[in-house]
Design a protein around this nucleic acid. Structure first.
Lengths: 262, 262
DNA sequence: CGTCGGCTTTGACGTGCGTCAAGGGCGGGC
DNA sequence: GCCCGCCCTTGACGCACGTCAAAGCCGACG
């Protein structure tokens, strides 16, 4: 049983534009949740670790943060101190360019770890915002680095974490550089579907947690184009769309769209 | 003085399509080149390290590979064993998608380290090809990981290496997702200029080592568009272009192009 | 020194997607 | 229950860039 304990307002999560930061920091020791009992342990940082390494990870997680929809976990330019593992809910990460444009760089679901853009630098290079009520485990990076010096398995997981982010972005670059609107949205839907499945949810029917505009930002399209492609997919019987509820009706055809070379 | 010694054909670099692999593996001990005497030591993996840590890095580099223009250093799917530091010359990395499209993921100059996409996984996720005659230092990753467990400075540099790749790709995603052709090429030219400057070359005049098609692939454009934008830049007096020789005439205007929000 | 192939430039044309605008749905708050 | 604001959809239109085609350039190689 999990007890929410409001201890203090979390500094790094404060939205300086709003007078009332709503981020809540939880003391993990008092709420009695450990990686060992966490349903996500095989997806998260402790994936594939032996019992000893897992217990080390457990000691690492000394705090959790509870975010309400729209809360900011970290923002561009603030000092980098920690990675964050998503326990429940979901987040988007947003890159900002100097010319005022911004772009959603990723959508992140339970078991995923965000903040990797700040590793090895002093500051976060992007912003993380909760798409719904969300809970994250704080992984202080200095301690994680120390642990990965002691334990090869932990080190390997840390390396894998970083390289997966590199690989994920490569796929997105291919999408942004070579694919048409229909293909982009198809990739997006198949990716979400697959990730929901890994989490044990339906891979055929799910609820989008982001607006059309956010999807468009992620895919390099406008919200109107996203909407139009959704409608086209629906007309052609590939999916059923009602607002944010998506049903994948004809996965094979959606896949075929992606695989076709133009 | 450096002596090239041909020892054996490098397995991982062999181009299986061509009967005569031209990659040459050099024994670094015999050619007597060390990081300590390398002009790139402050740009490369040993950036910011103390003497002790640098000597460890030196021990790490037991081989170098000499590539001729067009040679492949590693290709998608081959087992990941090492990172590669570019000593001289330059490379491109190429991502391949399942639908047959490919895309240049990056251009890499002396002092830069490639192969990071394979870290933490079993196989390389992209292909690296020499754009000109090129020499790389082999950094066996298992040994680098071991070293980073012993030495915090080395660990930090490894982390920085990986996170820089993440940050670099974020910038590219922004470029591909939000920028127009002129802005993309402007970013490309300014980036090259800045990197040549770091290496001690002219930041105003340089030679492109890649074709218009390769530039286009990198920027998500066709070769015709790249060519047309070069011509437009030239007409407007921003640059002078003669084939692959580029002179930056009006850097301020080029910057302004990038900074303008549309 | 001439030929050949790959790279580049330029033009003409088509189109996919962005832009602008209007209207409808839906959920949250009073 | 009603209103308001945000989100979504759809249409009309234009433009930036892709596509197709032709011709020039340049370096490699015989």
């Amino acid at each position: 049983m999990q007890v929410a304990v409001m201890l203090q307002t979390a500094r790094p999560c404060q939205d300086f534009a709003t007078p009332q930061p709503r981020t809540v920091l939880l003391d993990v020791k008092r709420v009695q949740v450990t990686c060992q009992t966490c349903k996500l342990q095989n997806l998260c940082l402790s994936e594939g670790l032996d019992a000893e390494a897992k217990s080390h990870i457990d000691e690492l997680v000394t705090a959790r943060i509870r975010l309400r929809k729209g809360d900011t976990l970290f923002r561009t330019g603030i000092p980098f101190t920690s990675l964050y593992a998503i326990r429940s809910g979901s987040c988007k990460t947003v890159s900002l360019s100097e010319n005022g444009h911004d772009q959603v760089a990723g959508y992140h679901m339970p078991g995923e770890i965000i903040g990797t853009d700040g590793v090895g630098t002093d500051a976060h290079a992007c912003q993380a915002v909760a798409l719904e009520d969300t809970e994250v485990c704080v992984l202080p990076f200095e301690r994680l680095a120390a642990l990965s010096r002691q334990n090869r398995q932990v080190q390997h997981n840390l390396h894998r974490l970083l390289s997966r982010e590199i690989a994920r972005e490569r796929v997105l670059m291919l999408l942004l550089g070579t694919m048409h609107a229909e293909q982009r949205l198809a990739v997006f839907l198949l990716d979400l579907s697959q990730r929901y499945q890994v989490l044990g949810y339906s891979s055929c029917e799910f609820v989008l947690r982001m607006t059309r505009e956010e999807i468009g930002s992620y895919l390099g399209l406008t919200l109107e184009t996203v909407s139009r492609v959704f409608s086209r997919f629906q007309r052609e019987g590939l999916v059923q769309v009602q607002g944010r509820v998506v049903k994948l009706l004809d996965r094979a055809s959606v896949k075929r769209l992606v695989d076709s070379s133009d």
